[in-house]
Design a protein around this nucleic acid. Structure first.
Length: 816
RNA sequence: GCCGGGGUGGCGAAAUUGGUCAUACGCGCCUGGCUUAAAACCAGGUGUCCCCGUUGGGGGCGUGAGGGUUCGAAUCCCUCCCCCGGCACCA
């Protein structure tokens, strides 16, 4: 009784013990390669999206980092040098809002949160190299964020422009398109307004085409690439010039249907188009146009986006020349044309565009059909004709009769020859506005000088430290602007009076390069050493939420492409393999802070140990699928861990034996399956199932000569999932080398090859019997054995056999 | 509307990509053991319908629906339905 009691599994005892060993021995630290080193092991960069330190970890984090942990241990034990760092995305709005609420400094709140998350991470036993920890808010880090900004600025890839921005009236700040969800602020839910401001932009559109390709990517989810491609949105077509003689203007339009230009019966400018007011100047329509522009500008936002809205617009009194027909067509201003797509102006072809048709109907504009189905069809009855293979141009001058796609090419060529058009590609993607009127972010190292204009802060004056301010609230102007002493600075170029840039950077800038800094985190003379970064990168396996598809994952790709063009690194895609973990749901809903239904890992770790939490979160569901956290399921895992303990302790007394019993064979099959599931498929849940099968069989065969081997195998294979209990059991099995340093087991191929196999016998494709036969029999012999089976005989029923299919090593199918 | 992912027991899911009676592993449920009792633990059972000589054995049907290819289909093809995600007055 007493002996049994000491051997009870007690995670509270075991887990702190091994965590202390790992800390003392610096088990998780990994060195960069030594320049003189010649025998370099294979290396592997394992990365999960860094956490935002907003309080404590939730189950989503536990899932994410446990997946990374399994892969880290797995690769490490396969002999790879594994880089698995951690850091904190520590600038950003929530810390600032908490600071306003609590009256503490955002730095204080942030660092407090980081300390508590770090503690949680250690308690979960994650294999993290803490020597490489970085946080975005530390001057040692953001100094290089600023440095990178200056490089982009030098290349004209960061620029300043006045632009309509998404303005959140509640947070008093500009939002990126990605932060606007259904016309509302992602964070506070307030309705977003339009506002025109001087802003900083990254010219991500310069890389639009390449960002749609994934050269250098090894494995990305199809859906993620589809989301990014939809977001970037590429259309091929032409830019055509429409002349306004009276004002001596040529206004470009973008169209995907240059074949329909002969049918353009009107011309439309977006209300925000810089020429909109000028066109109407001096015409009878001037007042009406001004009034319309003012009204639509105010109504931007949500209502304007509704596709089923009635078309509105106003005639300018001017005409443009259709470059194909040379006929004047009326110029209108209408808000169904968007300023920030194409050129902000369109040719109206009501016969072949649904929206143009509606507009023409509303204002009585003529409809001219210029494309018809091959057979003539009943085009007159139809509002417009879809673009398809069997269509030909009509009413199109010398192009009449050409098939539509060919006609499009011929027309663009013809217009190009007189300078009135050219082939063009248009993207939906906009440049990335990254100015934020906020305090808790990376200062933008720019000085505005009355004489010199925009002047970058010299590199040797970096970092521009984030100053202290009285109040973090924006109140219309950015908080940094309230610190007059900080704001006023001599111009770095002429020494005259200058004012600092008071906006800070979007935190997505910080996270666009953190994975590079991890490689060389303490470098004081450069953001990184190119040799070191090129050694580790691209990241071999990245894991994080799919919600970052059009944000972080796109920005990081853009950054790496630019940095490659600058010669700062030697690759063009940051993440070779990408994987999205599913959501952890509880009580049928997504866990999120805003819903207040977060179950933290702390209580569960406290009650049942980190191993149980780690193992359960990866059990039962494929890694990319949402999963429900159920108490009964978790209890099942706790039960299994206790069973593992019991069964392994029982086998510890058994003698080592190499006898190839069925249990030994099962152990080798499990090694093969678990290795393949983790390595190739990331199917952590089926790997766990396989080990459970092995443990079940071991439990059923305590006296088996291979019991000890089976126990050791189960412990070894579970080690990446449950590092504490397996470390303890491995030691109790009498091993001196700790299990995490044990090479990953390799299945013995000899034991995987069977001497006999179960031959499946089918009659007409239906399984009728199975028989154990020796491997390597001739086909005729297999067929003869199959026919001899009584149950097969019964189904053959004396009928003649028409065909025989033999799959060697598997089955015989008799067709009658 | 366009693009992408998906639909398998009561539930989470497996079947590694055309070849072992489809449902491994787990949850739930049922039966039994242990117990004064309960919990825990342990053992067995659990798609569905039917048949027989009924502590056993045999058969039909079953992977959203319908069709097709094949000796053989959850897996491939066609048509359709439904669910989830992205884009959308984007010219």
């Amino acid at each position: 009784m007493f002996a049994e009691a000491i051997d009870l599994y007690d995670p509270k005892e075991i887990e702190p013990k091994w965590q202390q060993v790992w800390a003392d021995q610096r088990t998780f630290a990994v060195a960069n390669p030594d320049p003189g080193e010649d025998a370099d092991p294979d290396h592997f960069y394992m990365l999960e999206m860094l956490p935002y330190p907003s309080g404590v970890l939730h189950m989503g984090h536990v899932l994410n980092y446990t997946m990374g942990d399994v892969l880290t241990y797995f690769r490490r034990r396969q002999g790879y040098r594994v880089l698995r760092p951690m850091g904190f995305d520590s600038f950003g709005l929530p810390a600032e809002n908490a600071a306003i609420r609590e009256g503490a400094h955002p730095r204080e709140i942030t660092e407090r949160n980081i300390a508590s998350i770090r503690k949680q991470m250690r308690r979960l036993g994650w294999h993290i190299d803490w020597d490489r920890e970085v946080s975005a808010h530390e001057p040692e880090y953001y100094r290089w964020t600023q440095w990178l900004f200056l490089k982009f600025y030098e290349e004209d890839l960061a620029y300043r422009a006045e632009a309509p921005v998404n303005w959140c009236p509640n947070d008093q700040t500009v939002l990126a398109n990605e932060q606007v969800i259904d016309g509302r602020c992602e964070r506070c839910g307030a309705e977003v307004e339009a506002k025109s401001l001087e802003q900083w932009f990254f010219r991500i559109t310069a890389y639009a085409d390449e960002l749609r390709r994934y050269d250098g990517v090894v494995s990305w989810p199809e859906r993620t690439m589809a989301i990014q491609r939809n977001w970037i949105g590429r259309s091929e077509g032409a830019e055509l010039l429409f002349r306004v003689d009276e004002l001596d203007l040529d206004i470009p339009v973008f169209t995907t249907r240059p074949d329909t230009v002969f049918g353009a019966t009107f011309f439309v400018l977006a209300p925000e188009h810089p020429l909109a007011r000028r066109l109407a100047e001096g015409t009878a329509a001037e007042d009406a146009v001004n009034e319309y522009v003012k009204r639509t500008a105010a109504a931007r936002g949500e209502e304007r986006l509704a596709a089923d809205r009635e078309k509105t617009g106003v005639f300018t009194g001017r005409y443009a020349i259709n470059p194909a027909t040379d006929e004047p067509i009326p110029i209108w201003i209408a808000d169904y044309v968007l300023m920030d797509y194409g050129t902000g102006a369109i040719m109206g072809v009501p016969a072949h565009d649904e929206r143009d048709f509606e507009f023409a109907q509303a204002f009585g504009l003529p409809v001219v059909t210029v494309v018809e189905p091959e057979d003539g069809g009943d085009a007159e009855e139809e509002a417009f004709v879809a673009h398809s293979e069997g269509e030909r141009l009509v009413n199109s001058g010398q192009f009449t009769g050409l098939p539509a796609p060919e006609g499009a090419r011929a027309i663009v060529e013809w217009l190009a020859s007189t300078g009135r058009g050219r082939p063009a590609i248009s993207f939906r993607l906009r440049d990335w506005g990254f100015s934020r009127q906020r305090y808790w972010g990376c200062p933008i190292p720019i000085v505005y000088c009355e004489a010199c204009g925009i002047v970058p802060v010299p590199e040797d004056e970096l970092p521009v430290l984030l100053p202290e301010v009285e109040d973090y609230r924006p109140k219309g102007k950015p908080p940094l602007a309230s610190n007059e002493e900080w704001m006023n600075v001599p111009c770095p170029r002429c020494g005259g009076p200058g004012r600092r840039e008071a906006d800070t950077m979007d935190t997505f800038v910080d996270s666009s390069w953190y994975f590079l800094r991890y490689c060389d985190p303490r470098n004081e003379s450069a953001p990184w050493d190119r040799q070191i970064v090129d050694y580790w990168c691209p990241v071999d396996q990245y894991i994080g939420g799919i919600e970052h598809a059009t944000g972080h994952l796109l920005y990081s790709r853009f950054f790496v492409k630019v940095l490659n063009d600058l010669g700062l690194l030697g690759f063009r895609e940051p993440f070779a393999r990408l994987f999205h973990q599913g959501w952890v749901r509880f009580a049928g809903t997504k866990m999120s802070k805003s819903r207040g239904n977060v179950i933290g890992p702390d209580e569960l770790v406290e009650a049942h140990g980190a191993d149980a939490v780690r193992l359960y979160v990866l059990s039962d569901s494929p890694p990319d699928q949402d999963r429900a956290w159920t108490d009964s399921g978790f209890e099942g895992t706790v039960r299994f861990i206790r069973k593992l303990w019991r069964v392994v302790i029982a086998a510890a007394d058994a003698d080592p034996s190499a006898e190839p019993t069925p249990l030994a064979r099962k152990a080798h099959e499990t090694i093969a399956k678990v290795s393949d599931d983790i390595d190739r498929r990331l199917h952590f849940h089926t790997a766990i199932s396989a080990v459970r099968e092995l443990v079940n069989e071991l439990g059923d065969a305590p006296g088996d000569p291979a019991a000890r081997f089976a126990a050791e195998t189960a412990v070894s294979l579970l080690q990446p999932y449950t590092p504490h209990i397996t470390a303890e059991l491995w030691e109790r099995l009498g091993h001196k080398t700790p299990v995490w340093e044990e090479p990953w087991p390799v299945a013995d191929p000899a034991l995987l090859v069977r001497e006999t196999f179960q031959l499946v016998v089918q009659v007409n494709g239906r399984v009728r019997d199975r028989v154990e036969v020796e491997v390597g029999l001739a086909e005729e012999e297999l067929v003869a054995r199959a026919k001899a089976l009584p149950r097969v005989q019964a189904h053959l029923d004396g009928k003649p056999i028409r065909d025989v299919i033999v799959v060697p090593g598997k089955l015989v199918n008799l067709v009658v």
